[in-house]
Amino acid sequence: MPTAIRATGLVKKYGAVTALDGLDLEVEEGTVLGLLGPNGAGKTTAVRVFTTLLRPDSGHAEVAGVDVLRHPKELRRRIGVSGQYAAVDEHLTGFENLDMVGRLYHLGAAASRARARELLEQFDLAHAAERVVKGWSGGMRRRLDLAGALVAQPPVLFLDEPTTGLDPRGRVGMWNVIEGLVRGGTTLLLTTQYLEEADRLADRIAVIDHGRVIALGTADELKAQVGGERIEVVLLDPARLTTARHEAAAVGIEEPGVDDRDRRVTVAVDGGTTDLVELLGRLDRAGIEVLEAGLRRPTLDDVFLALTGHHAEAETPSGDTDDPNQPDDPDDPAAGEQEGVA
């Protein structure tokens, strides 16, 4: 299958900070690559290089067969990008935003208008089409921004943390939208801090840290490296942690982790609920009282711990924004999917 996105040895330094440290990447046409990494890993920098917004210090990048540095304008005809922060004009209405983008893609007036209407409908924004974006919620802006990336139906799409800052409902809504796009055959590079998101949307996942790819594979391959699911148990009595750890080790496939402060024991297992039942039985027989027990899928943090031996800063998805630089949303971020009031 032909390669839609290719990077070799991309380097970008900001003073003493090395944002990209020899990044190599390949995405096959019609597939989805999840670029997974914690805050500051270099995801946004990579996307900005691919989308001609940033010149790398060295290295080579090619998208849809076009050299990013040599033919930026040609490249821009073939890509759509939705950045980490919504690139929409607050003082224009939803319709005007998309219509403007269509005209700047040189689709012509009639086609731009028709496409704008179509996208507003598709992204469930038709009701707000004639309202200025200033009063819109964060989730609506995000969808409008994504719609902006799709105006010219580009064969290659870049989405930089499309669900960061959205509430759980907004996140699932966005996932559905993205899955729809991918079914249409678009090549997608998606960045995320959430393993769960990459797992659901991506064909292959590239784990990135300090500006380089440290692991590459399908979600299953990565999870195999990470060691399957996790059992977490929280004890009533901290004095029993050592015993509990022992029991967990007997069930798990790796050394269990112990968190003294939370009285929590975590262990990787490959037997799912069977292992959970088994461990609970063992703890019960040992007379250890369990306050809380559960089975969860591995997170980015688990991947990091397994791959690098250190924790990722960002952990599991939450309704909050993970980036302190995220501009303030005028609306309640929890109102992600609701209508904003002008």
Binding site: L53, K73, I79, V81, G83, Y85, V88, D89, V101, L104
Partner: peptide, 13 residues
């Protein structure tokens, strides 16, 4: 300073 500049810059305008 606004995000819209990134949209402009990513378009073939």
């Amino acid at each position: 300073q606004k995000g819209i500049i990134d949209r402009f810059r990513s378009l073939p305008m």
